[in-house]
Amino acid sequence: MSIFAPKQFFALISFIIMVGLVLYKVQQARNGKVPTIRKIAGLEAIEEAVGRATEMGRPIHYTPGTGNLVAATFAGLEVLGLAARTVARYGAQIIVTIRRPLVLPIADEIVRNSYMAEGIVESYSPDSVRYISSEQFAYAAGVMGIMSREKIAANIMLGYFLAESLMLSETGFKMGAIQIAGTDNRSQVPFFVATCDYVLIGEELFAAGAVASGNPLKLGSIAGQDLGKIYAILLLVIGSVTVNLGLNFLVDLMSK
């Protein structure tokens, strides 16, 4: 019996190549060669949003999405750290709403640490991070109510979203809040594009997470993934050209 599952050999090789590229760039970053990541407008707008909310004396709503502990949730939580630090610095108020119980302790710790990092842990309110419901639309109904009653001035939604995306962003739009949203779920990006001021599309969310963390290793991993994209483009171009020349070696190789 083969040690590989059938037709998975090339996938394994590709995986090793891409992980290798990420490790290479992470190692470079560790040695001090930190890559520069292009500006992400949505991330830079966080300070503007918090500033505006502070001026208006109204809270900022933040949600790290409705997904479980998936990559997008972690990216949303990384940016939560940045947003919460900015909120603490400005003396504004943040309301973080949570759908997944697993995400609650992490979000809670991040907000608390952000206030601690700004030296005002006494200003941290345990009521800032609120578990609403793990039922999708009960969560949406609850958050819509909070956004409306608390008269939020800014709405930041970064993470994995499903159908609740439009319900939340539409409510934020009605409230006249400045809205920053991002998700890796392609189905929901159109709604954010239609209703929000700044949108992070797909992988921009992960890059924003890395930038917000300020961690050179994470920035290195983003650069490593960029090399992985070049690998994908090369496969695409070589495969397409060779197939049209009547050569099927790459198709055969990729089928192994």
Binding site: A5, P6, K7, Q8, A163, R186, S187, Q188
Partner: peptide, 19 residues
């Protein structure tokens, strides 16, 4: 599908069709 070759069909809500 990928590991065992079992055919997969989908019955979806509209939002999930494009992707």
């Amino acid at each position: 599908q990928a590991l065992y070759g079992t055919p997969v069909g989908c019955a979806l809500n509209s939002v999930n069709v494009t992707n």
